[in-house]
Design a protein around this nucleic acid. Structure first.
Lengths: 147, 147
DNA sequence: CTTTTTGTCTACCTTGAACATACAAAAGAG
DNA sequence: CTCTTTTGTATGTTCAAGGTAGACAAAAAG
């Protein structure tokens, strides 16, 4: 996302990118990537996200598609939506993980690795990426506990 | 997969599991998981995979759905398909990775982590899983170089 | 009070996933 | 060699769901 709009977006964090040729629906791609930013703590509670129409124009999709992504995130408790006001980031406590969630994660991780291995990525490169993500996980932990 | 069929399947490796409620199409779920096994070297070149109809019955889907997965894997060079004969595993050299592939991997990895974080998985649990996958990557490397 | 902003709702269209069924080629039985 | 079985392929159909357009409603802005 997001055109840099002087008063609304202090620093354009990670850009949203969509792949129209993917089988993953666009609204879900959008939701996934915004969720990633939220989990990483790139937005403060109370902050306003860009409007559905702004993002829609940026990505070249219909505003309803973005609205669907927002609605999903709202259902998950990340956002508060009200017409006329926009999308506000909520403070959300993560629930306890179920054992199934962990197994599902393991499987999806293995599939992902298999796919990129098949695309030619070396084990070395994959491990490097793991380490970087692990790093950022540690950073988050620190920042969280400082609150 | 795969019912244990005495002469065809020496050891039923990893089972295929599909999630009908997922937005990811079933044929792709199947392809992803078989590809994972192929990348991990769980099948030897020349070995025959179960028939489309066997897997279809096991999973409770139409055989054409499995055939679509097989066709995808064949296009990627993993399998050789011929009617009457079945699906034979080919020896496939992985291509060189493009820079884009690595970036795409980084993004997808972050999305995945964000999703499971949101589902309550702790950073600790995530890192543990990373380490396990890293381990298995090392094992593969060893085995590959022994050839 | 009027206009603008912003999310929501309804209706529609299109795509493609999944399926049922018939077909064709290779292998196997005799 | 012929018939049957096995196995992937091709064709046509159905239906859910993603995406869109456009109207609507509530809050804010002026």
């Amino acid at each position: 996302m997001f055109k840099v709009d002087k008063k609304q977006m202090p620093a354009a964090k990670r850009l949203i990118k969509i792949d129209l040729s993917s089988t993953v629906p666009v609204y879900q791609q959008i939701a996934d990537q915004i969720r990633a930013m939220l989990v990483e703590g790139q937005f403060k509670a109370g902050e306003r996200l860009p409007t559905v129409r702004q993002i829609a124009v940026d990505l070249g999709v219909n505003h309803n598609t973005v609205a669907e992504a927002y609605r999903n995130l709202a259902e998950e408790g990340w956002l508060s939506l009200e017409r006329g006001r926009g999308a506000v980031v909520m403070s959300r406590s993560t629930p306890a993980a179920t054992p199934k969630a962990r197994i599902a994660f393991a499987n999806r991780l293995r599939d992902l690795v298999a796919q990129v291995r098949a695309a030619g990525l070396s084990p070395r490169a994959i491990r490097t990426e793991f380490e970087e993500v692990s790093e950022s996980l540690l950073m988050q932990k620190k920042r969280d506990s400082r609150r």
